[in-house]
């Protein structure tokens, strides 16, 4: 695991919540996102798998991925907010996730004798690489290619949810919401006082 300290120590994009960097609707949608904490679409069993998947795709220095990451994936499924397309080999996103999680757990039981969230870190990692390489073999996948599910749904949806969280913006030093106030200093190595300060080694 990564032992370095944070790149932007002390930076918290939420500190700007009540400054001109955030407008009313932004406060509303981010506030709402931060209240998400449990499954509304997924079953409890699926939720455990999803959270373990999040811990693998966006692993944290200290402990588990923020609960809002899995919760935002769940929220996307609950409202059925789609991307605008799907590959012919995948069913619609809700069905793909349901079938995908079931197949992952089936694959895990066949190989390691337990559900995904019960495996060790190393086993989880091996299993995900197997999906990525298209080497899943459980019949539970049916006609849905594990490789396409892995790329288009699993990694895509989890990363998109994680990087929609202020927590992730702090790690990256992203300025976060910016309206009505945007930025003044645009040149190399220039920052406004409302931007993150990078820790240089």
């Amino acid at each position: 695991m990564n032992n370095r300290g944070p790149r932007y120590p002390g930076y918290n994009v939420l500190d700007k919540r009540d400054t001109p960097s955030w407008n009313e609707i932004t406060r509303k949608v981010i506030d709402h996102r931060l209240t998400l904490d449990g499954p509304k679409f997924f079953t409890l069993e699926e939720w455990l798998t999803l959270r373990a998947l999040c811990d693998c795709i966006v692993p944290q220095r200290s402990g588990r991925a923020p609960v809002q990451c899995a919760a935002l994936v769940d929220h996307k499924m609950e409202l059925d907010q789609r991307d605008g397309f799907r590959p012919p080999s995948l069913p619609s996103q809700r069905e793909a996730w349901r079938r995908g999680i079931a197949a992952i757990n089936e694959e895990c039981r066949e190989r390691y004798g337990g559900a995904f969230h019960e495996l060790t870190g190393g086993q989880q990692d091996r299993l995900l690489r197997l999906l990525e390489e298209g080497e899943a073999s459980s019949p539970a996948w049916g006609d849905m290619p594990a490789k396409v599910f892995f790329k288009r749904r699993l990694v895509h949806d989890i990363a998109a949810a994680y990087y929609a969280l202020p927590h992730a913006w702090n790690e990256m030093g992203f300025g976060g919401p910016a309206s009505p106030r945007g930025y003044v200093r645009l040149d190399f190595n220039k920052r406004d006082r409302w931007e993150a300060i990078e820790q240089h080694d």
Binding site: P20, S179, P180, R181, G182, Y183, V184, D192, R193, W194
Partner: peptide
């Protein structure tokens, strides 16, 4: 943002 956004 007008004067509320004075810093910019």
């Amino acid at each position: 943002g007008g004067w509320r956004n004075w810093s910019q």
